[in-house]
Design a protein around this nucleic acid. Sequence first.
DNA 1: ACTGAGCACTCGTACTCATTGAGTGCTTAC
DNA 2: GTAAGCACTCAATGAGTACGAGTGCTCAGT
Lengths: 349, 349
Amino acid sequence: MGEVTDKNQSLNEREQSILHHVVYNYIQTAIPVGSRYISKHFESSLSAASIRNVMADLEELGFLSHPHTSAGRVPTDLGYRFYIDYLMEMQQLGDDEKLRIHQQLDQTNDADEMLRETSKLLGKISHQLSIVTSPHLSSGVFEKIELIPITSSKLLVVISIRTGIVRTIMMEVGVEVRRDHLDQVGRLLNERLSGLTLHEIRDSFVDRVRDMQSEQTGLIRLFIESVDQLFTDSKERDKVLIGGTKNIIEHPEFIDPKNFRSVIELIENEDIIVHLLEKHDELQKGFVVTIGAENKDETAKEYSFVTGTYDVEGVTGRVGIIGPTRMNYSKVIPLVDYVAQTIAKMLSA
Amino acid sequence: MGEVTDKNQSLNEREQSILHHVVYNYIQTAIPVGSRYISKHFESSLSAASIRNVMADLEELGFLSHPHTSAGRVPTDLGYRFYIDYLMEMQQLGDDEKLRIHQQLDQTNDADEMLRETSKLLGKISHQLSIVTSPHLSSGVFEKIELIPITSSKLLVVISIRTGIVRTIMMEVGVEVRRDHLDQVGRLLNERLSGLTLHEIRDSFVDRVRDMQSEQTGLIRLFIESVDQLFTDSKERDKVLIGGTKNIIEHPEFIDPKNFRSVIELIENEDIIVHLLEKHDELQKGFVVTIGAENKDETAKEYSFVTGTYDVEGVTGRVGIIGPTRMNYSKVIPLVDYVAQTIAKMLSA
DNA sequence: ACTGAGCACTCGTACTCATTGAGTGCTTAC
DNA sequence: GTAAGCACTCAATGAGTACGAGTGCTCAGT
């Protein structure tokens, strides 16, 4: 409770301590915390009036704010940021929760299914919205391609990645293609593309199959046209799973129907989330926290995102949670981190 | 407005007419309709007092109810039912809307993708929750199976159905299986299962492969164990797509946060919906409307379901909408009906 | 026997107003 | 720099009131 790091900038020890208490309490209770309360419960050595002085300073520095004159203090985004970076103590994940995570995720070996389970799980444990993105296959290493005729005009293309993840795409072909020709094209593609990443393939596909273009059926031409569909992470396909709406709306911030709308908007408008997650990807591997207005989007400016990367031989994706900026970071961050690592392990097994 | 059918039971013409007006108006405005209002706007020949008498009768018969003494009348579930069955006039779908539906659904030829588009579309046009189930493959006719080794211990099973729909399942195999053996098993399965429905296959699979069980790798044994996973519509897999939350919460019924919760509950708890849709399947092909408490589920007792079947050579699924019992049935029913027919056409093309 | 006018009654909604109490900010004394 | 005192602000609460929509019932007219 009283520990204070000093690798920080502008705040002296007392200021840090009081900021800590304000943030901590507000996260727990959702009610603005007043000077008197802190004096009574935490800093008995200081009077309420002194604490008020410090609080006024913290407010001027942008760490705290005031809903209205006669209310207690509430952390700003900057306040949360300082709290997370310097003050907060991570809360170890309980063994029971670890067990629960493993049990839930052990149920299946289908990657998609597992990600769905992950989404449900994160939502329930964290009481926040959960977000799980399917893996970005672009940087995955091509293992092999398989072409399966479905009807005379439809072709199922199965691309498998070294980690054991597969992508299946239904392709419309104009004319009927003979099975042996299909096999032949498949064999050639496998030879030429083996060992490359999907990303590399997309960029160099045309060159690699240039000499094949003269073949009769135009199958290769079709592949060239569809190269983006086959080898790129389209936003359409790489959907993000969002779950746990039921859990999140229990939070007191959602008594106000306005906030209610905003969270629904966020859920329905996946694009916003996808876009903000891209920012997370750019930031770094490992876990990332963005708070409130740090998310450069109007709709998300009252929410925090906590996400972690899972990485299976270069194929990466993100799992995480979204919730009101007032959330239990010290508990949620380790949770997200652990879940990310766990599914990475599961997927590579 | 004034048309009154007489193929009905207990209600005389005047009662029907007034019931009609009450339901119609309440659907439009969401405010309880009073006797005076009807007298003024629709039945000028009758005084408010007379209309009150009729309303009292309708209430006693269970078609109308009273939020409280000094409020107007509101239809009960039974009132809506009578309205839909005998009074309502279907509203033709506009050409612009038909066009919009076609344009949106023409974008893709991937079945899953198309169903997702359908979901979005229905939600937007109807301003209700949209529901779309993926096709029940059980009654589809087996076309062929394809076994594709992914890693040494993982196998992708592709089952294609006559209509061109495919199901892919990732299977864990204990030991490594040689490619030629895989091909051999695949060939045999194709020979023996061809032309049967998945349903038939599930029931008779063990008999049909009895003589193959002695082969070395135990692959057949594995198939027998997984027969449910492969040939049955599991509730896990046959997910129902739900969309349009944003649209539905604009309705005035959702100013009350309690209703808000209930709709979220409904969305999160897909099982409830799946279960209620099964009831729809039992009822009949074509469109089905269930109103409020007709849905045998506590959570759904204030919502109506309107769904239609799409049928592609025996493979069927449902599309539809969910909304407050107060919904514009005369518009929504033709919409659902039309969309169902359209995607059936699209899928079989 | 049906219709409709009149009237008392109910009840939810909206509005005002005073009270309360938490909490601040400032001033002043130590 | 610390704390005590005090005036001030402002949201929340609840009581009181007026309003009005709408019903239910009665009774007179046709």
